[in-house]
Amino acid sequence: MVNKLQFGKLPNDGDASQTIVRKAIDNAISALGGPIHKTIIWHMNNRGVFANPKKIDINFFYDNLRELLGPGADMIMEDTWEHLQKQHGVHFDRDFERKHTPAEKIRKVMEIGEA
Protein backbone atom coordinates (compact mmCIF):
# COMPACT_ATOMS: atom_id res chain seq x y z
CA MET A 1 0.00 0.00 0.00
CA VAL A 2 2.88 2.32 0.85
CA ASN A 3 4.06 2.57 -2.75
CA LYS A 4 0.60 3.67 -3.79
CA LEU A 5 0.76 6.77 -1.62
CA GLN A 6 1.47 9.99 -3.45
CA PHE A 7 3.07 12.55 -1.22
CA GLY A 8 2.69 15.45 -3.62
CA LYS A 9 4.16 18.51 -1.88
CA LEU A 10 4.51 16.70 1.46
CA PRO A 11 8.19 16.16 2.33
CA ASN A 12 9.16 12.59 3.11
CA ASP A 13 10.60 13.62 6.44
CA GLY A 14 9.31 12.76 9.94
CA ASP A 15 9.51 16.20 11.57
CA ALA A 16 8.17 18.00 8.51
CA SER A 17 5.20 15.66 8.14
CA GLN A 18 4.40 16.09 11.86
CA THR A 19 4.46 19.88 11.42
CA ILE A 20 2.30 19.74 8.33
CA VAL A 21 -0.25 17.42 9.98
CA ARG A 22 -0.33 19.68 13.03
CA LYS A 23 -0.95 22.68 10.79
CA ALA A 24 -3.72 20.83 8.94
CA ILE A 25 -5.36 19.96 12.29
CA ASP A 26 -5.09 23.59 13.31
CA ASN A 27 -6.72 24.75 10.08
CA ALA A 28 -9.56 22.24 10.44
CA ILE A 29 -10.31 23.38 14.00
CA SER A 30 -9.95 27.06 13.04
CA ALA A 31 -12.63 26.60 10.40
CA LEU A 32 -15.12 26.16 13.25
CA GLY A 33 -14.37 29.66 14.52
CA GLY A 34 -11.57 31.39 16.44
CA PRO A 35 -12.90 31.15 20.02
CA ILE A 36 -13.87 27.48 19.57
CA HIS A 37 -10.41 26.77 18.21
CA LYS A 38 -8.96 28.24 21.38
CA THR A 39 -11.30 26.13 23.54
CA ILE A 40 -10.53 22.85 21.75
CA ILE A 41 -6.78 23.48 21.81
CA TRP A 42 -7.03 24.34 25.51
CA HIS A 43 -8.80 21.03 26.23
CA MET A 44 -6.29 19.08 24.15
CA ASN A 45 -3.35 20.76 25.93
CA ASN A 46 -5.00 20.05 29.27
CA ARG A 47 -5.13 16.37 28.34
CA GLY A 48 -1.52 16.35 27.25
CA VAL A 49 -2.36 15.71 23.59
CA PHE A 50 0.07 18.35 22.34
CA ALA A 51 2.59 17.84 25.16
CA ASN A 52 5.33 17.09 22.65
CA PRO A 53 5.23 19.90 20.07
CA LYS A 54 7.31 17.84 17.63
CA LYS A 55 5.26 14.68 17.76
CA ILE A 56 1.51 14.14 17.66
CA ASP A 57 -0.01 10.80 18.53
CA ILE A 58 -2.92 10.97 16.09
CA ASN A 59 -4.82 8.12 17.82
CA PHE A 60 -4.52 9.82 21.19
CA PHE A 61 -5.62 13.11 19.61
CA TYR A 62 -8.62 11.50 17.90
CA ASP A 63 -9.70 9.59 21.03
CA ASN A 64 -9.59 12.78 23.10
CA LEU A 65 -11.37 14.78 20.43
CA ARG A 66 -14.16 12.19 20.28
CA GLU A 67 -14.45 12.22 24.04
CA LEU A 68 -14.82 16.00 23.96
CA LEU A 69 -16.89 16.61 20.82
CA GLY A 70 -18.54 13.28 20.01
CA PRO A 71 -19.40 13.01 16.31
CA GLY A 72 -17.93 16.47 15.64
CA ALA A 73 -14.46 14.91 16.00
CA ASP A 74 -14.99 13.05 12.74
CA MET A 75 -15.69 16.28 10.91
CA ILE A 76 -12.40 17.73 12.18
CA MET A 77 -10.52 14.60 11.07
CA GLU A 78 -12.18 14.69 7.65
CA ASP A 79 -11.32 18.37 7.22
CA THR A 80 -7.74 17.69 8.31
CA TRP A 81 -7.43 14.94 5.70
CA GLU A 82 -9.02 17.17 3.06
CA HIS A 83 -6.52 19.91 3.88
CA LEU A 84 -3.61 17.49 3.51
CA GLN A 85 -4.98 16.43 0.14
CA LYS A 86 -5.62 19.93 -1.17
CA GLN A 87 -2.62 21.77 0.24
CA HIS A 88 -0.02 19.03 0.04
CA GLY A 89 -1.32 16.75 -2.68
CA VAL A 90 -1.38 13.67 -0.45
CA HIS A 91 -3.33 10.83 -2.04
CA PHE A 92 -3.70 7.10 -1.52
CA ASP A 93 -5.04 4.76 -4.13
CA ARG A 94 -8.82 4.69 -4.38
CA ASP A 95 -9.23 1.35 -2.62
CA PHE A 96 -7.25 2.49 0.43
CA GLU A 97 -9.08 5.83 0.47
CA ARG A 98 -12.45 4.10 0.52
CA LYS A 99 -11.65 1.50 3.17
CA HIS A 100 -9.96 3.70 5.74
CA THR A 101 -11.12 6.51 7.98
CA PRO A 102 -9.46 9.95 7.81
CA ALA A 103 -7.72 9.23 11.14
CA GLU A 104 -6.21 6.03 9.71
CA LYS A 105 -5.09 7.81 6.55
CA ILE A 106 -3.46 10.63 8.52
CA ARG A 107 -1.71 8.07 10.73
CA LYS A 108 -0.42 6.29 7.63
CA VAL A 109 0.97 9.55 6.26
CA MET A 110 2.80 10.14 9.53
CA GLU A 111 4.12 6.58 9.68
CA ILE A 112 5.49 6.87 6.16
CA GLY A 113 7.03 10.24 6.97
CA GLU A 114 8.80 8.71 9.95
CA ALA A 115 10.05 5.62 8.09
Binding site: S30, A31, L32, G33, G34, P35, I36, H37
Partner: peptide, 10 residues
Protein backbone atom coordinates in the same frame (compact mmCIF):
# COMPACT_ATOMS: atom_id res chain seq x y z
CA UNK B 1 -20.50 39.57 20.15
CA UNK B 2 -18.11 37.21 21.94
CA UNK B 3 -17.29 34.86 19.09
CA UNK B 4 -17.75 36.99 16.00
CA UNK B 5 -19.24 35.76 12.76
CA UNK B 6 -16.34 33.77 11.35
CA UNK B 7 -16.07 30.05 10.93
CA UNK B 8 -18.80 27.42 10.79
CA UNK B 9 -20.12 28.20 14.26
CA UNK B 10 -19.65 31.97 13.98
Amino acid sequence: SRQGIHGLFG
